[in-house]
């Protein structure tokens, strides 16, 4: 609710010059957020549940060819196209974190939000994938993250459970959240630190500074979705 002070506009910067496309973020995200695997056939048929994926494009022709990596996850749009189309308010905007929430309990599975997501960042539980996890492998499921059942949409939450935990911890200790204290699983795992996460409302935070870089751009900027994820152009296109 709006009565609390406006801090914690969480945002992310992904430096594509540093991103090696190694997919550690993909695995880390899956392990943190109880994302079920779907198996060879379903994963190949566009049913992989990856909340974050590394898009790999090619530029040029052999031998002057180079891949271009772009990790794409939910961009936590300020004006999210997915939100207003949900008939039951299952995907809503969090006023506190300024991120886009998916409320699994309310989702009835119209999949409209996913159609309207220009970033194709949403995954749908086509089957009860998480029920197919054999015991005891379900022991590692994160108790802080809902295990989604079939028929609901899901997507990157910026590891909101970690955001909350960090905020609660800071509150309990009577201080503000420190920059870098809260990191989502992808940023935590990223071996080259290409993913920077933090509070965009604090102009001195690492993420704010990075987001002011001259190489900055946002995905599909022309749509006016106001994404919270900023990319820094890679391949040596250096400015400031």
């Amino acid at each position: 609710m709006a009565e609390e002070k406006q801090t914690g506009r969480w945002g992310m910067v992904i430096d594509l010059d540093v991103c090696t496309g190694c997919n550690a973020c993909v695995t880390a995200c899956a392990m943190e957020n109880n994302i079920p695997w779907t198996g060879e056939e379903d994963a190949g048929y566009g049913r992989g549940m990856h909340w974050i994926r590394v898009q790999r494009y090619w530029e040029g022709e052999y031998p002057d060819i180079s891949p271009h990596y772009q990790p794409v996850m939910c961009q936590q749009c300020g004006r999210a196209p997915c939100e207003p189309v949900c008939p039951v308010f299952a995907t809503v905007h969090s006023e506190e974190q300024q991120i886009n929430l998916q409320v699994y309990n309310r989702c009835i599975g119209t999949r409209y939000c996913a159609n309207n997501c220009p970033y194709i960042a949403r995954s749908f539980n086509w089957f009860d994938y998480s029920q197919q996890i054999p015991t005891p492998m379900n022991y590692y499921l994160n108790p802080n993250v809902t295990v989604r059942r079939r028929g609901v949409m899901e997507k990157c939450t910026f590891c909101v459970q970690r955001i909350y935990e960090g905020q609660e911890r800071a509150k309990a200790e009577g201080r503000a959240v420190r920059d870098g204290e809260i990191v989502p699983a992808c940023a935590q795992a990223c071996p080259t630190d290409a993913i920077i996460f933090g509070d965009l409302s604090d102009p001195d935070s690492r993420v704010s500074k990075a987001a002011r870089n001259q190489r900055r751009y946002t995905l599909l900027e022309e749509l006016g979705t106001e994404p919270k994820v900023t990319y820094l152009k890679g391949e040596g296109t250096y400015g400031g």
Partner: peptide, 30 residues
């Protein structure tokens, strides 16, 4: 629950690769 990198460790300084991240799936493999 979750494997994370040890930020103090001189080798990986808080980071992990996909193999290390899935260590729990080895531990709890049926």
């Amino acid at each position: 629950i979750k494997a994370e990198g040890n930020p103090a460790h001189p080798v990986n300084r808080g980071k992990l690769c996909p193999r290390g991240l899935t260590a729990v799936q080895g531990l709890y493999n049926p």
